[in-house]
């Protein structure tokens, strides 16, 4: 953890998310291969990596939208992977934002924010409305409370989706590529909301392709590939000075998207399907890869 955010709690505390030996398979394909990751209160962790690397699956395993095949996930003291765990109850404390926003199209913006408050948290209508309006103001959408989701731009919908999660007063927020479905000019408004949220000390786990966001806002960056965590650390290390060849090749590609790699080590890199050929980063990696960095 960096010293850039002194207001945040010390990481020596118990983690708020603890992922222990997580394995997830879809049929014969193992998407996550023994993942260990702890996230501490107040921390902002960005998970980056090529598509198919398992980062979204990892995030979805945290609140059990995907049921892990093996390993354990703890949220605070609650073991999510315990079959007797009251998932519905624990989930009320975990906010989540999706790539496609998933606002409820048959409900007005205000109702989107209050329905879970009144029905799940049993707050009174007045209290729920008040909290909803506070959060709409927080994301700059207070003027749209009577609109319906279909009438709004993608950026506006995503900000409202964030406000909807915040209205449950969560202990932590999960973001699953929140800006990937947005037009480029709308990305900024969503990232700005997330940035201010991070400043307020919210614990956040963010799967993203926005390297600038990860570099500026994250306390820790996790680079995943082929179902493994390849590298993790402060953004200035992982993004600024990556040690692993896989990280280097991914970053050089993302940061210089128009450059065609010369050595063509990339031809195999995005699809970690060939057993023993690629996608096994723990041993050695392709050390002959030196291009571009």
């Amino acid at each position: 953890m960096t010293l850039s955010s002194p207001s945040k709690s010390s990481p020596t505390k118990t983690p708020i998310i603890s992922i222990q030996g997580l394995v997830k398979s879809f049929g014969p394909i193992e998407v996550l291969k023994h993942i260990n990751l702890d996230i501490y209160p107040g921390e902002v962790v960005c998970v980056i990596g090529p598509s198919g690397s398992g980062k979204s699956t990892l995030l979805r395993c945290v609140n059990m939208l995907e049921t892990p095949t093996g390993g354990k996930v703890f949220i605070g003291d609650d073991e999510m992977t315990d079959p007797d765990c009251d998932l519905d109850n624990v989930r009320t404390h975990i906010g989540m934002c999706f790539q496609n926003f998933n606002l409820f199209p048959h409900l007005s913006v205000l109702k989107n924010l209050t329905i879970a408050q009144t029905q799940i948290l049993k707050r009174s209508k007045e209290e729920a409305d008040k909290i909803a309006r506070e959060n709409l103001t927080r994301v700059g959408m207070a003027h749209k409370e009577d609109s319906y989701p279909a009438q709004l731009s993608g950026g506006q919908q995503q900000r409202i989706a964030i406000a909807r999660s915040l209205s449950m007063t969560p202990n932590l927020m999960l973001f699953d590529e929140p800006t990937s479905a947005l037009d480029p000019e709308l990305v900024g408004e969503v990232l700005a909301v997330m940035k201010s949220l991070a400043k307020e000390g919210m614990t956040m786990m963010v799967v993203t392709h926005e390297m600038a966001f990860a570099r500026d806002v994250a306390d820790r960056v996790v680079f995943m590939d082929g179902g493994y965590i390849v590298e993790e650390g402060p953004p200035e290390e992982v993004i600024g000075n990556p040690q692993e060849a896989r990280t280097k090749s991914f970053l050089s590609r993302v940061l210089n998207p128009t450059e065609v790699p010369v050595g063509d080590d990339f031809a195999a890199a995005p699809a970690p399907v060939e057993e023993g050929h690629v996608g096994i980063p723990e041993r050695g990696l392709d050390t002959n890869f030196t291009r571009g960095l």
């Binding site: 009320t92 998933n102 409820f104 879970a116 799940i120 449950m168």
Partner: peptide
């Protein structure tokens, strides 16, 4: 998924 995430 959105509903389940909110605790429904």
């Amino acid at each position: 998924e959105a509903a389940r995430t909110l605790g429904f």
